[in-house]
Simulated scan of single mutants.
Amino acid sequence: MWVCPGEADPELVRAGVALIADERGSVLVDAGQSPSHAREIQAALLAAGLPAPRWLVYTHHHWDHVWGACAWPDVEIVGHASGADLLRAEADRPWSVRYLREEVLRNRRLGPSFRARALAVDSWEELRILPPTRVFTDEVELPTGVLLRHVGGRHAPDSTVVVVPDSEVMLLGDSWYPPPAHLRTPADEPDLALVGRLLDDTIGWYVSSHSAPMTLDDARRAIAG
Rank of each mutant, 00 (worst) to 15 (best):
L46G: 05
W63G: 02
S96T: 14
D200A: 03
D158P: 03
E103G: 03
G79H: 09
P165R: 06
L45W: 03
L194V: 02
I41R: 03
P51R: 14
H65W: 12
E126N: 06
V195L: 15
A43M: 06
L19K: 06
V17Q: 09
R128P: 02
R54P: 00
L171E: 03
G83H: 02
E189L: 10
P165V: 01
V146N: 00
R101L: 14
L56F: 15
E189H: 09
H60S: 09
A15V: 01
H80S: 10
L87H: 05
L148G: 05
L119E: 07
A219Y: 03
M214A: 14
R115M: 07
H210D: 15
V78W: 13
Q33N: 13
R221M: 13
L105V: 09
L86P: 01
P165Y: 00
V104W: 14
H61V: 03
R154E: 13
S208Y: 06
L192D: 04
A224D: 15
V151F: 09
A116M: 07
A89Q: 12
L119W: 12
A118D: 13
E168S: 15
T215A: 08
P178H: 08
D74I: 01
V29K: 01
H61E: 15
L199V: 00
H155R: 10
S113I: 03
D191W: 04
A18Q: 12
G25F: 13
V57T: 05
T160L: 05
A38E: 02
P53F: 10
F136S: 07
H150L: 13
Y177T: 11
G79M: 00
H182V: 01
V135Y: 03
C4A: 14
S208A: 15
G49M: 09
I41T: 02
V66S: 12
D9W: 04
D191I: 08
R39C: 11
M170W: 10
D9Y: 06
G145H: 11
A48N: 06
V161L: 11
F114S: 10
V195C: 13
G6Q: 00
T144Q: 13
P180S: 07
A84G: 05
C70W: 00
V207R: 04
I129H: 07
A48Y: 01
S211I: 05
A52D: 10
V66E: 11
E168L: 10
A69L: 08
A222D: 00
G49H: 03
E125F: 04
A181P: 01
M214S: 12
V66Y: 11
H60I: 07
T144V: 11
R109M: 10
A44R: 15
T215K: 14
P51L: 04
